[in-house]
Simulated scan of single mutants.
Amino acid sequence: MNKKPAFTTICSLFFLVMILSNTATANESMLMEAPIIIDGQTFRTPYIMRDGHLLVPAIFVKNTGAYVDKNEAFHSIVFSRGETKFAIPIGKNYSDDFDRLTGNWIRKPLATSSIEFQGVPFIPLIDVVKKLGMNVQYDANLGRTFITTNFHIKSNVVRKANTKEKLVALTFDDGPEDYYTPQIIDVLKQKNAPATFFVVGRQVQLFPEVMKQIVKEGHGIGNHTWNHPDLRKEWSGKVKEEIRMTQDEMEGVVGRRPHLFRPPFGAITKSDMRLLNDLGMKNMHWSVDTLDWSGLSADEILEIVHRDVSPGGIILQHNFQSNVRMLDGTVEALPRIIDELRAKGYTFVTLQTLLDMEQEE
C-alpha cells in the first residue's frame, strides 16, 4: 500500500525534470541576441547563459582581431593573438595553453564549460578575451558588455583614392564567366577603358580562357576568394586558404599573384583585416555601389554613378553567371558610364594605377 504513493512521487519528479529539461532546450533553440561593444563598435551576437556566464559563438571572437580556428582532430577551438595561443576543447571546462618557451600545452580551468549547440561551438566570452590580454567589463545599468582589445590593427580598407585628379576605376566582381564577361571586355576594348576584375578562384578554374583574355586586354585583377563566402562566418584558417587557393589558381592561369583583395559582400572582421596585413594585401572596397546585382536597369545604374562618383572613385559592378539575365543593365550601362564620365573630365584607370597616383601626391 505504501509503494504506490512512492512510485507516484518518483514518476511526478521524473516528469517535472523532463518538463524543465524540455523548457531549457526550447529556450536555447530560440537564442536571444546581445550587443557586445568592442573598442567602441557594437556587434550583436546570439548567446547562451550557463552557470551565470555568457557564452557566445566561438567565431564571434574574430571581431576582436584574434585568429580563431577549429581543430577537428581534437574537437577544440584554437585562439591566437601575438605570442598567446590556447585551445578550448568543446564540452570541457578547461583550456590547454601553449607555452612557447617549453613547447608544452598546460591545462588551466575555465569558469564554465564550452558547449556545442546546433553544431555551433559556444565559448565563455569573458574567460577567452581575458586570456587574450583584453579588458572586459559589464555595465549593469546599460546592460552592455564592453571589451577593450588593447590590440591595434592597421586599417587596410580602401574605398577611394585620395586624389583631386578626376581619376576613376571601374571594377567587376564574381567572374570570370562566359556570357557577361566577354561582353564587358568588348565594350571596354571599344572604349579603350581599363578596368579591374576581382575574380573568384573556382570561376578562374572553370573559365581559364576568359581569365587570360582579361589580362591580355590590359585589365587589372584582384582576389575575391575561392568560393565567395561571408568571411565573418569562416574560421581564420579557412579565410587564408580561400585567398591562397585563388592566388595559386591565378598564378597557374595568368602568371600573376595580385596583392589586391576584395571581401565578398564587403564583409570582414578585424581578424580578417589582420590576416590581409600579414599577407601584404590591400583590402579594396568601393565608393560607388551600382547595385547592379539586383537587376537594376541601365538608367537606374547611371543615376547612381552620377550621384556618387567623385575624383578617386571606385565603381562596383558585377560579372557573375545569371540564368535570369540579372546583369543586362550592367552591360547596357557600361558604354554610357564611360562616355558620360569622360564628358565630365574623368579618366578611367585600373585600381593599381589609382593607388600609384595616390602615392605620388
Rank of each mutant, 00 (worst) to 15 (best):
E332L: 07
N323K: 11
S310G: 05
V331P: 06
I301K: 14
G329H: 06
V331T: 12
G312S: 04
S297V: 07
F320T: 06
I301R: 15
A298H: 11
V309Q: 01
Q321A: 15
F320S: 11
P335W: 06
V331W: 04
L302V: 08
I337P: 08
I304A: 07
E300K: 14
E300G: 07
L296A: 12
G329I: 09
L302H: 12
T330F: 04
N319G: 14
M326A: 14
I315F: 03
I304Y: 15
E303D: 09
I314F: 00
N319V: 11
G313K: 06
H318N: 10
N319Y: 00
G295V: 10
I301F: 14
A333V: 07
L316K: 11
Q317E: 14
S297Q: 13
T330Q: 03
R325H: 14
V305R: 01
I314G: 07
R307L: 11
G312V: 07
Q317S: 13
R307H: 15
D299C: 07
R325C: 01
I304K: 15
A298E: 11
A333R: 08
S310Y: 04
D308I: 09
N323Y: 12
I314K: 00
E332R: 10
L316W: 10
G312L: 08
V324P: 09
I338V: 09
D328R: 01
L334R: 02
P335D: 03
L316V: 14
D328W: 05
G295A: 06
P335M: 09
I314W: 02
L316Q: 07
I301P: 12
G329C: 06
D328S: 07
S322M: 01
M326K: 04
D308V: 09
N319R: 02
I304W: 12
I301E: 09
R336W: 00
L302G: 11
Q321N: 06
I337V: 14
A333I: 02
E340I: 08
V324Q: 04
P311A: 06
A298C: 12
R325T: 05
I301Y: 14
R336I: 13
R336Q: 09
Q317Y: 08
T330R: 07
L302R: 08
F320Y: 11
I315Q: 03
L302W: 11
N323R: 03
I304E: 10
S297D: 06
D299T: 07
T330I: 03
F320L: 08
Q317G: 03
E340F: 03
L302Q: 13
P311V: 06
L334G: 05
T330G: 05
T330L: 03
D328L: 09
M326E: 08
A333H: 06
L296Q: 15
L316F: 07
V331G: 04
T330N: 05
R307Y: 13
S310M: 12
A298M: 05
Q317D: 13
R325I: 01
L296I: 00
F320C: 13
E332P: 00
L327T: 00
I314M: 06
